[in-house]
Amino acid sequence: MTTPLLLIVDDSRTSRMLIRGLIAQLRPDWRLVEAGNGDEALAAVEAEVPTHVSMDVNMPGMSGLEAAARIRIKHPEVRIVMCTANIQESTRNAAAQAGIGFVSKPITERSVTESLAFWEAAP
């Protein structure tokens, strides 16, 4: 089995760096790619389909939910976790219906551990 590839999508470089740092500690063998917005994320998926995705909800341009939905349509096997400070029921429900995980910001060891639990759970 090839090593997992994680796609980190967030418009904030700080957040991407935080996730990258924590994953490097917790899952040193994982390969990582980053995207700063929804379009870049879709392009990254075209280049190589990731195993897991960490997706910010609130980004300029295409929203994280839309980007996640577009990835899911083509690649239903990809496990996607949405990260947001904005834990509104409607957002949560939309994500749950699409079979998508949900963790709250700020990015901490705890939020990344929760993401890992979702990514690595049997689908």
Partner: peptide, 24 residues
């Protein structure tokens, strides 16, 4: 600098995100 600006932006985004939840 760029990193400070980005980090502050993200911190306030989390803040207003929480506020949006409470207001909703």
């Amino acid at each position: 600098d760029e990193l400070q600006q980005d980090a502050l932006g993200e911190i306030f985004n989390i803040g207003v995100g929480r506020a949006a939840g409470a207001l909703s």
